[in-house]
């Protein structure tokens, strides 16, 4: 990762600082596939999923209808608590999955945060967090569908690996910290509010994870 990169506010696609694209604005002011009324009965949708928390400032809930024969996503409704980019990212994500007759579940699960960002015309770096949430919400929704249709072998749970056993810090914690803008071991420590990396071995492991996630989301 480039050491001289300016703080998180640069939009990696347009180079603009702290600015939303017209697509983001359009989907923020006029979100598509928003769920207006909560489902009255459990069978109205085939599956649902929720991620995030209001304490984090982002929370997303999704409801899905699936064509059981073709496994295409017929309908994907959502509600989001969060900033403009979180709302816009969920909106465009729901469009990507349902347009042109709908994606199959397998294809839908391959949609990456980067695809969402491209369709949005880019997001400022520190807002990439928001587009990651949409795909996590969908993974949970898909898992719910697999569970309900007895396809437990298709469920994907994001496994977490403990990297610092004394403090029980996992690779997911490091991922979160990087998504929130941490770029060094020191900054990760600040985000997690603990002094991680008791031994050199743990430190090296954490540093390589920081590099890995930085490349994944910002590289």
């Amino acid at each position: 990762m480039n050491e001289n990169k300016a703080p998180e506010v640069i939009n990696q696609f347009t180079g603009e600082k702290w600015y939303y694209s017209d697509t983001v604005k359009e989907h923020f002011f006029h979100p598509r596939n928003l769920l207006w009324e909560r489902p009255k009965n459990q069978n109205e949708f085939d599956a649902e999923g929720m991620v995030g928390s209001p304490a984090c400032g982002d929370m997303m809930q999704m409801w899905m209808k699936v064509d059981r024969n073709t496994e295409r996503v017929i309908d994907l409704k959502w509600k989001t608590f969060g900033c403009a980019s979180a709302i816009a990212a969920t909106s465009i994500y729901s469009v990507i999955l349902t347009e042109n007759g709908g994606m199959t579940l397998d294809d839908a699960l391959k949609v990456k945060p980067q695809d969402v960002m491209k369709r949005l015309g880019g997001l400022p770096n520190r807002k990439i967090h928001c587009s990651v949430l949409a795909d996590k919400a969908f993974q949970k929704t898909a898992n719910d569908y697999f569970r309900k249709t007895g396809q437990n072998h298709r469920i994907v749970v994001e496994g977490a690996r403990v990297v610092d056993p004394t403090l029980n810090i996992t690779d997911k914690d490091i991922e979160e910290a990087v998504l929130e803008g941490a770029q060094t071991l020191d900054e990760v420590q600040k985000k997690l509010k603990v002094g991680i990396g008791a031994s050199e071995e743990v430190k090296t492991d954490i540093e390589s994870l920081v590099r890995f996630y930085s490349d994944k989301y910002y590289g």
Binding site: S53, P54, F81
Partner: peptide, 22 residues
């Protein structure tokens, strides 16, 4: 209407802690 939340205005601690689970 966009938001899925229903918070308690008298809350002194975090809502939806279960959302963190996993």
């Amino acid at each position: 209407r966009v938001s899925p939340l229903e918070l308690d205005p008298n809350a002194a601690s975090m809502s939806h802690p279960e959302a963190f689970a996993g």
